[in-house]
């Protein structure tokens, strides 16, 4: 691929041959060199921080800043270091809310932490999406991976409503769905890492689901086939999200280190804690909805 290597150099050279920007140019050159010769590192999950910073998060930034105008609350509740499990409500037909949360923490947390999210197996089965998800640091939602990440002091994100959350009809917006089997609580208790209940307002309105076509979903191997006011009627244009106003609120951490490790195997404790987390997120959602004056405001 020699052409790909030479084009940017020529462009830059033509513009500013003598400017002090040449160290930047050398850095850019070095970046392209490292990428093209494979000289970068990935962790055991396949996380590629350089790719995440440059390729993956950059295009989301305008969406975050200008389109959804995301407002952040309680960033101080996200720990500066150590493992923690961020649990949030899921909505919006596709998992844009998860991506926005990752960007929020990467850009606005004092330590610019990476959020390592736990995704459904469908994500990792799907070409390109699975590849990008792994490179962005995400992994399959399963107990061994959740524990491994938490024990490695990573900030882990989970959306326990899963497809039930993002695929629910518009009429049920902001009503939390069932929280799986509480697997995420077990992981947090077993590793003694805190849970950060997180509420996301705004994602419900980006693609309001008015109907579902189960037959199309089955044919395409998808969990649902959404009908929104714009999709599929407007074709690709229907995939442009509505510019709703977003608020992401990180709640006070719920400590789990005071529980004995054996509590993780006690279904009662796990289900109770799951309910506490769910209730905190639901209350926070109601509060934020009252505060937000209008959907697009």
């Amino acid at each position: 691929m020699p052409d790909a290597q030479i084009i940017p150099i020529d462009g830059e050279r033509g513009r500013q041959p003598e400017s002090p920007s040449s160290p930047a140019l050398l850095r850019a050159l070095d970046f392209v060199r490292r990428r093209l010769t494979g000289d970068y590192e990935v962790d055991e999950f396949g996380f590629d921080p350089e790719f995440t910073d440059t390729v993956m998060l950059a295009p989301l930034r305008p969406l975050f800043e200008s389109w959804f105008r995301v407002e952040l609350r309680g960033m101080e509740n996200v720990p500066e270091e150590g493992g923690a499990l961020l649990v949030a409500n899921h909505s919006g037909t596709i998992a844009v809310d998860a991506l926005m949360t990752q960007l929020a923490i990467h850009d606005h947390h004092p330590r610019h932490r990476y959020l390592r999210m736990l995704g459904a197996d469908l994500v990792f089965e799907t070409p390109f999406i699975g590849e990008i998800a792994r490179k962005a640091g995400h992994t399959l939602a399963c107990m061994p991976d959740a524990e491994r990440l938490l024990l490695a002091d990573q900030l882990v994100g989970v959306w326990p409503e899963g497809f039930k959350g993002i695929g629910k009809p518009f009429s049920e917006r902001y009503k939390l769905q069932r929280f799986g089997r509480g697997g995420f609580v077990t992981a947090a208790v077993r590793t003694g890492r805190p849970i950060i209940p997180t509420a996301i307002v705004g994602a419900e309105e980006i693609y309001p689901i008015l109907g579902n076509v189960p037959l199309a979903a089955r044919l395409l191997g998808l969990p649902y086939f959404p009908l929104t006011p714009t999709f599929p009627w407007l074709g690709p244009l229907g995939m442009v999200p509505l510019p709703s106003k977003w608020i992401i609120a990180f709640g006070e951490p719920i400590a789990t280190d005071d529980l004995a490790e054996a509590a993780a195997d006690d279904p009662m404790t796990v289900l109770e804690l799951t309910d506490v987390v769910r209730e905190r997120i639901q209350q926070s959602l109601y509060r934020l909805l009252v505060e937000r004056e209008s959907v697009f405001g």
């Binding site: 150099i9 050279r13 003598e18 050398l26 050159l29």
Partner: peptide, 15 residues
């Protein structure tokens, strides 16, 4: 690829 980049590096530095 390395030699292409070395060449490019030198060009930028020289310029």
């Amino acid at each position: 690829a390395e030699s292409v980049f070395d060449g490019a590096d030198n060009t930028v530095k020289a310029l």
